[in-house]
Every structure is written in structure tokens, then in C-alpha cells.
Amino acid sequence: MKTSVFAFGTRRAQRAHAVVLLALAASIVGSGVAAAIVGGFRINLTPSEPLGLWRIVALDRPAAAGDLVFICPPQTPVMQEARERGYLRSGACTGGVAPLIKTVIAIAGQHVEIGASVTIDGRAIASSDLAERDGKGRPMTPFAGGIVPGESVFLHSPFRSSYDSRYFGPLPTSGILGLAQPVLTYVP
């Protein structure tokens, strides 16, 4: 008479082992994600900057033009509309959105003009032409332009479809989490 014995015992025992292993794997992944977030690491899944793993590095001075920063957008009507349209991803910033990765192109006191493209203090910004419509055909409203207010920055990404200050205007420097440092990234 043949008897069948499973490597891990009965089917019930096999299922119990599988549940325990699955729970352990989920715990390890969850702990890794939590440690990465606490350690200042973020994953960028938007084409505004290279995709992949980034690190937030403390900024121990005022933000300057040319700085690539992580910044939490404020909860304003413009940002709420951006969230509803799907321009902002879910994340840990106030309002449940992910921090943006953008380059500071103007600081407080500088003059921003918005036309077919952006100029800062009369200097044209490369790759700054505006889109009239988003990817779903909805109209895009550009920022009116003007002087960047105190304790604010004007942000840009060279990616044409980027949602940046061309549309939402300057953001308060209080939302800056730090400099954005690529760790393991690629451009698709």
C-alpha cells in the first residue's frame, strides 16, 4: 500500500506555512519601505526627472536658482484641482500628495514672465514652452507671472508635460524637504 506524504505535511499545514511566509514577506517589504522613507529615500515614477531611487539631502542654506529640490505643494485650490486631474501622486505631504522634484529657477524678488515660454528677469528659460492642453485634452491655465514673493521659489522641469510653476506659480520655501539627489535612476 502506498501512502502519500507531502514535503510539508498536510495540505492544511502547507497553507498555514504559505500564509506565514506571505505575512513575513509583506512585513519585510513594509519595513524596508518605511526605513527608506524615514531615511529620506523616495522613488520617482514621473518623467519630470529620471525615474528611480532618489534621496532627500538636508538643505542648510536658503534655496538658490539651480537647486533640484523635493518640495511639498501647499493645499491651495490650484493644487486641489491638480490632484483631481491626476497630476499629483499620492504621498506623505499634507493633503496626501507626494513631494515634487523640481529645479528652482527663480527666488524671491525675481521677475517671471509667462508667454509662449518662461523668462526670468528677461532671460529665456530653455524647454519652458507651455502646453495649452493636458494629455486628456483639458485646457491648461498658465500662471500670470510677476515678482516671486518673499520666502517662495519658482520651479521648473525641462520635461514638456511637467506640471510645475508655469501653471501653479511660486511655492513657499517652507515646503522644501531638501535637495534631490539621484541614487539609482534612469531616463526611459
Rank of each mutant, 00 (worst) to 15 (best):
F143C: 05
A25M: 12
P77L: 09
T141Q: 08
L88V: 08
P182F: 10
A7Y: 12
R12H: 14
C72A: 13
A7S: 14
L179A: 02
F143W: 11
G39D: 06
G115S: 07
M1R: 13
Q14E: 11
A180L: 01
D164V: 02
C72D: 08
G122F: 10
F143N: 04
L51E: 07
S31L: 15
Y186N: 12
G66N: 04
C93G: 11
A106C: 11
A126P: 03
V153Y: 04
G122V: 10
A65T: 15
M1P: 11
P62V: 05
G39F: 06
S127L: 07
F143R: 04
P170L: 14
I176H: 00
Q75E: 15
W54G: 06
V20N: 15
T103E: 03
L100F: 05
E132M: 07
A82C: 11
G32D: 07
P188R: 10
G109E: 13
A144E: 15
V104W: 02
G9W: 12
M79L: 15
F143Y: 14
K102E: 02
P50I: 06
D67N: 00
Y163R: 02
V148W: 07
S165L: 04
A98D: 03
Y167K: 03
G122E: 12
I105H: 07
G86E: 07
R138T: 00
R11L: 11
G91Y: 10
A116E: 04
H111L: 12
A7N: 10
G135L: 08
E151C: 15
W54V: 07
V69G: 01
P142S: 08
M140S: 00
G146R: 14
D121H: 09
N44V: 04
L88D: 03
D129A: 05
R15T: 03
S48H: 01
E49R: 02
R85D: 05
G9R: 11
G95M: 12
A13M: 15
G150C: 15
E84W: 11
P139R: 08
T119R: 13
L171Q: 12
A131V: 03
P50Y: 08
Q181M: 06
G115T: 03
R160A: 11
H156D: 00
V33W: 04
